[in-house]
Design a protein around this nucleic acid. Structure first.
Lengths: 207, 207, 207, 207
DNA sequence: GATGAATGAGTGTTCATTCAT
DNA sequence: AATGAATGAACACTCATTCAT
């Protein structure tokens, strides 16, 4: 898990039966659809339940709050994203630093761009729901993985690894997100991705 | 102005008397304070009016909506920020590209860090209020200024200026914001800022 | 039904349980009482709910608007009124025209006079709520019934039935209502009713 | 005047100067236009003042209430209508009863039909504003004039004049209004008017 | 006298949450 | 376990009226 969620946000019960699992999935799916379609401000518990095909009462058996529901949806999404990044980091253990950086950029870029509307909608819901702790936890987790990867680089001879790692991570994640928010796509996005790789490699060589 | 706001978000009337201007300022100030203290979801029109020392009715003479109020507050803030960046761009006309980039980083970093809680609170309110057009307009405006500045560089010999400018802008704004959101401060922030300058310079030299 | 109500005015859901039906009745009753006591301008959703012994929220489960509530109350009332008139028309199929007219006058007069304050209050609410379509629909429906009745008259030998029917209907409904609004009652109302019968009979004989 | 208005509804001051009179006219005109365009529920004091080209404050110098304004507008309208009817009554002194009735029908019909939207809008405003006393006063006044006219008829030999007069007045006013509300116009309205005359004449001959 | 900024009580409506069935 | 009717606090917004300038 991304982090142990605060007590208040924990789901009420973990589903034990197969049917309950399907219900839970339906609720998640409904939530995401509504979030994408109308945004958090239009999302009501009744509407989620309706679209998920369950009653409000049932929904409240799984989630004690509206907030807990949103939290869970985001937790799930970030969990998957974190796993993707960790997988990349594992795969590149021992490579050259430049290649690591390139792989990282690719992975994050693709993850963001995969379902852009879902990404956008969920990000907004995090902000609006004060769930920014979720994002911090995600950052910590990926930082760990990335630091480990970079430390294993075959060309690792840098004296100030801490600072350099932090720089790379902040630049990459910040840039990808900014590009995404600026709506870059197609050829422009592709070019920017290449330039970012060039920039990072130039930085590494300069060290 | 950042952009001509959509009709629906325009303030109802511009203040003509000195008293009205003070009223307007009080409303802005109250809004920002509440936004910082409790966030948008706790901000009600009544509370804003109360803290500003006016009646709700008065507030509604100036703003047709709650949304228009938030819009105006953010517009004001981004206006100032844009002006700061434009000033920097003007000052550096004809410099070396590397110095331009450094100046840009400094300016934006300082602006963000100046009143971090206000910055954070306002940014969140933009997201929650669907006012992201404001941010786009800000981006367009600064892009123009920055592009003009870079074009005037004394060492400007790059063939693909468009792509390079876009890259620099996206990296710088994305990175500064990400650093800000990660809560970097003090020595760490300072180091990151220096590293970002180094990275950009390395990129420029590589071209 | 009086007419299919415009989408916007339709009740939100039909009650399915016995309890819900009682709730609905209580709401109707409360609305009428308040309308009679204070008029539409003093009728607030809160007050209706209070007097009906339910919460506002419950009211809004059945009616999407205040307007829909008023609409429903009037629809119900006019439905009953229309049924009474249709019953009279059915009963008199094949009679002499003069007797038909007399029966019609009697029925309408009695309906109006039955609960004069309710009649008055509801009529006012129709006007104030722009629900005049309801009244048109009522007029169309009764016109149909009356025309059918008159066409079946055993002494029907008139050449211009259309015009005569229209005249009779307009005179009768107009007169009864005007008498009602002038506050006629007791002996005076009785006399007027008789005179109206005489007048209509004189008209029919003249044809 | 239609009747001495209740103290609370009296205009605050009678205009003494020519300018004030023009202002008053502008206010009346603005009120009627807004009433016709949007109905009473959309009519606000601010909007009236705006359209009349004066400030709210000024309006409140002439009318102590919104209600007083509406009252005055209706009073004015009914005053003119009453005068028209009284004039007809005066003109027909000593005629035959049948001709009197016909003239009365014509006059009232024309008055209603003249500016139908204004008629409708003002009538609605009377109902909504609880100003029905105005209409009663109008009824009393015209009843007096009509009774006097009929009493002067050259063929007046009826024993129960009171009852007959009341009947004629109620039938005529009720029918004309009902026809108006049913939206009759053109050939149909014309026919109905003729039939009403026939009916009233038949009634008179029967007596 | 005229203006229009300021007032604030009052309204319709929503929606997270509960709990009787 | 599941339902969905019921709750009611909370909110955005209006507008007749006042009064300082």
């Amino acid at each position: 898990m991304i982090s142990s969620p605060p007590q208040a946000l924990k789901p009420r019960k973990r589903p034990q039966q197969r049917r309950a699992l399907a219900t839970l999935d339906a609720i998640f799916e409904a939530t995401i659809q509504l979030l994408v379609k109308d945004g958090l401000s239009q999302l009501t518990t009744t509407r989620v339940a309706e679209r998920a095909g369950v009653s409000v009462g049932t929904m409240y058996q799984y989630f004690p709050h509206k907030q807990a529901l949103i939290y869970a949806v985001n937790e799930r999404y970030l969990e998957l994203l974190a796993e993707r990044i960790e997988a990349t980091c594992r795969d590149r253990q021992g490579s050259l630093t430049g290649d690591m950086v390139e792989a990282l950029i690719d992975t994050y870029w693709q993850a963001k761009t995969d379902k852009p509307d879902v990404t956008r909608a969920l990000y907004r819901s995090v902000v609006e729901m004060d769930n920014e702790a979720l994002i911090s936890a995600f950052a910590v987790r990926t930082d760990v993985a990335i630091t480990a990867m970079l430390a294993s680089a075959s060309d690792n001879d840098r004296s100030d690894a801490r600072s350099n790692t932090r720089t790379l991570v902040t630049v990459i994640f910040g840039t990808v997100r900014n590009s995404f928010e600026r709506g870059h796509s197609g050829e422009i996005a592709e070019d920017l991705r290449r330039q970012l790789v060039i920039m990072c490699r130039a930085y590494l060589e300069r060290l």
